[in-house]
Design a protein around this nucleic acid. Structure first.
Length: 467
RNA sequence: CACCCCGUAGUCUAAAGGUUAGGAUGUCGGUCUUUCACACCGAAGAUGCUGGGUUCAAGUCCCGCCGGGGUGGCCA
C-alpha cells in the first residue's frame, strides 16, 4: 500500500510557521516512502473563509518548495457526503438525534461547573424516546460513543495513548443546520482520500482519540497517526502574533532562503545523530517518524540565520545573484542599471561570506550602486578627515597610473604607495575604503576597486581628496 | 477543575540501563588579516525540574511533587 499523507490547514490568511513544519514533515515522509502528499483546505468555517487566504497557503508552500499531489481539496465541498455518513450512523443506531438547544447546553455546563462536575454533555437524549422531541428545536446528530472501556490509539510519535471512554462525551457530528462538524469531516475526508498517515500538530492528539471512535463505529480502518509537538516562541509560550514573524512570508521578507528554513524546521524536533546541515535530498532519505521528539521546541532566529548564511554561501552564485538583484531592487526601490548589474557577479563571491540574510547581503552590496556622492556612515565620515584627503589625492594619482585594472596590479600599486609613504597598509586602506564604499567595513579593498572599475573608483576617491 | 502530552547548558538536540553527559547554535577569548566577515583554535556554560523507589549501575525504568503545553464548542 502506498503512503498518502495530507496537509490540512485552515485558511487563516498565511502559512503559519508551525503549519509549514507540519507540511514539511508530511512531505518528507511521503517522499521518503515514494508516496505523495495531498492538500486539503479546512474551509468549513464559512464565516471566516476568504479566497485570498487559500492563495496565501498555496504561495507559502510553493515558496518553501513543498508540492502536493493533484488538486487541492475543499473540505466544505464535501459537506453532502459528510451528512450522508452521519445519517448512515443514525440509521445504524450508532448515532442519535439530540434536541438540546444551545441555551440548554449552556445551562447544563454552568450547573456542572457549579457542582464541580465534568463539563461534558450528559447524553440526555441518547436513549430518550424520539416522540419526546420538541417541535421547535431542530436536532443535531451525536455519535453514540462507547461509555465503558477505553479507546487506545497507537501514535507513531507519542506512542500508545489511552483515554477512558468515560472521559469522552457524545460528540456532535451534524449541526442543527445540517452542516458537518470538523470531527466528522476530517474522518470522512481522510478515509475517502485514502490517507495512510496523518501527521499533524499534537494539539489534535486528544481529538485523534475521539476521531478513532468514528472510525470504529463506521467499521473503517483508521490511518496511522503521528502527532508532532508544537513550536513555541523564544519565551516558551505558544507562537502568536506578539512573537513577530508568524507566516513563512515573513521569513522570506527577512531574507531567509527556503532551503535554510526547511533545514531549520526539520531539525526542530527531529534529529539524525549529530548532523546539523541536512539538505533536502538527504532529508528525504533519512526522515522517519521515530526520531521526532515529543517535547515542544522554541523558535530560535539566530540558529535559523546561521543555517541561512550556510545556504547563502553554498548555493550557486548565478542563482544568488538573481536573488540579490531582486532584493536590491526592493530595498533601493529602483531598477539597477546594466553597469550596476554587471558588478554583481564579480562581487558576489566576496559578498556572500558576509551576510546571514538576503537583506543583509543587499545592504552589504549597496556600495556597488552608482549613487555619488556616496552617503557616508558616521565611522566612515571620520576616516576621510585629517590626513586622509591628502593621502587620497596621492592614491588617486597612483591608481590613475595603473594600466591594467585587475586585483593584483591594484594591490601592487596600493602596497607600493603605502611603502613609499612609510605607512602601514591599514592607514591607507581605511580612508580608501571609506571613500569607495561610504562604510568602514567592506570586502577586501583591492576587490572593491576591481568591482567598481577604474572610472567609478577614481571618481569616488576624487569626492574626498584634497583639491 | 478533569484528562492527555512534555521537562538534558540561553536555544535546538545526542547517547540498545554502563567511560569524564557528546554535537550544533549563541556568548566570551585567540589565530589569520587592510576593515568586516569567513575559516581555524580555545573557554565558560547542565548539581539532568524536584523528591523517593527498582538496580551492582538511572538522563534513561516506576511513583509522587512542581513547572510548561494541549484538550475539554452546534470553532477548526
Amino acid at each position: 500500500m502506498s503512503v498518502i499523507t495530507r496537509f490540512a490547514p485552515s485558511p487563516t490568511g498565511f502559512l503559519h510557521i508551525g503549519g509549514a513544519r507540519t507540511a514539511l514533515f508530511n512531505w518528507l515522509f511521503a517522499q521518503h516512502h515514494g508516496g505523495h502528499m495531498l492538500l486539503r483546505i479546512e474551509d468549513t468555517d464559512r464565516a471566516r473563509f476568504t479566497e485570498g487566504a487559500v492563495t496565501a497557503i498555496h504561495e507559502g508552500l510553493h515558496w518553501l518548495g513543498l508540492d502536493w499531489h493533484g488538486e487541492p481539496i475543499s473540505q466544505f465541498a464535501g459537506a453532502g457526503r459528510h451528512g450522508d455518513v452521519a445519517r448512515q450512523l443514525l440509521a445504524d443506531g450508532k448515532a442519535y438525534h439530540c434536541y438540546c438547544s444551545p441555551e440548554e447546553l449552556k445551562e447544563m455546563r454552568a450547573a456542572a461547573k457549579a457542582e464541580g462536575r465534568s463539563l461534558r454533555y450528559d447524553g440526555r437524549w441518547r436513549d430518550r424516546d424520539p416522540a419526546d422531541a420538541p417541535k421547535d428545536q431542530a436536532p443535531v446528530i451525536r455519535l453514540k460513543a462507547p461509555q465503558s472501556g477505553a479507546t487506545v490509539i497507537q501514535d507513531l510519535v507519542q506512542g500508545e495513548v489511552t483515554v477512558q471512554n468515560s472521559e469522552m462525551d457524545d460528540m456532535v457530528l451534524l449541526r442543527a443546520d445540517g452542516t458537518p462538524t470538523y470531527m466528522l469531516a476530517v474522518v470522512v475526508d481522510d478515509h475517502d482520500m485514502d490517507v495512510s498517515h496523518i501527521i499533524r500538530g499534537d494539539d489534535h492528539l486528544t481529538n485523534a482519540v475521539r476521531q478513532s471512535q468514528i472510525y470504529n463505529l463506521m467499521g473503517w480502518e483508521a490511518p496511522q497517526v503521528a502527532h508532532i509537538p508544537l513550536i513555541h516562541g523564544a519565551d516558551g509560550a505558544k507562537l502568536s502574533k506578539r512573537h513577530g514573524a508568524l507566516g513563512v512570508e515573513a521569513y522570506r521578507d527577512m531574507g531567509i532562503l527556503p532551503a535554510a528554513l526547511r533545514n531549520y524546521l526539520l531539525r526542530l524536533g527531529w534529529s539524525h545523530g549529530d548532523d546539523e546541515i541536512i539538505e533536502t535530498a538527504q532529508a528525504i532519505e533519512w526522515f522517519n517518524l521515530e526520531s521526532v521528539g515529543k517535547s515542544p521546541s522554541r523558535f530560535d532566529i539566530p540558529k535559523l540565520e546561521n543555517l541561512n548564511s550556510h545556504y547563502i554561501r553554498t548555493m550557486a552564485e548565478s542563482e544568488l545573484c538573481g536573488l540579490l538583484s531582486d532584493q536590491m531592487v526592493m530595498s533601493m526601490d529602483r531598477a539597477l542599471t546594466d553597469v550596476e548589474l554587471a558588478r554583481l557577479p564579480l562581487a558576489i563571491g566576496a559578498l556572500k561570506e558576509r551576510a546571514k540574510t538576503l537583506v543583509e547581503l543587499a545592504d552589504r552590496a549597496a556600495f556597488l550602486l552608482d549613487d555619488r556622492p556616496l552617503a557616508m556612515e558616521e565611522k566612515a565620515a571620520k576616516l576621510v578627515t585629517g590626513e586622509a584627503p591628502a593621502l587620497l589625492a596621492k592614491t588617486h594619482a597612483c591608481l590613475g597610473g595603473v594600466a591594467d585594472w585587475n586585483h593584483d596590479d591594484l594591490a601592487a600599486a596600493v602596497r607600493g604607495l603605502a611603502e613609499a609613504e612609510g605607512l602601514k597598509l591599514g592607514k591607507l586602506a581605511q580612508p580608501l575604503r571609506a571613500a569607495l564604499t561610504g562604510r568602514n567595513a567592506s570586502p577586501g579593498i583591492f576587490d572593491v576597486l576591481y568591482f567598481l572599475g577604474r572610472q567609478e573608483s577614481l571618481d569616488r576617491i576624487g569626492d574626498h581628496m584634497e583639491q
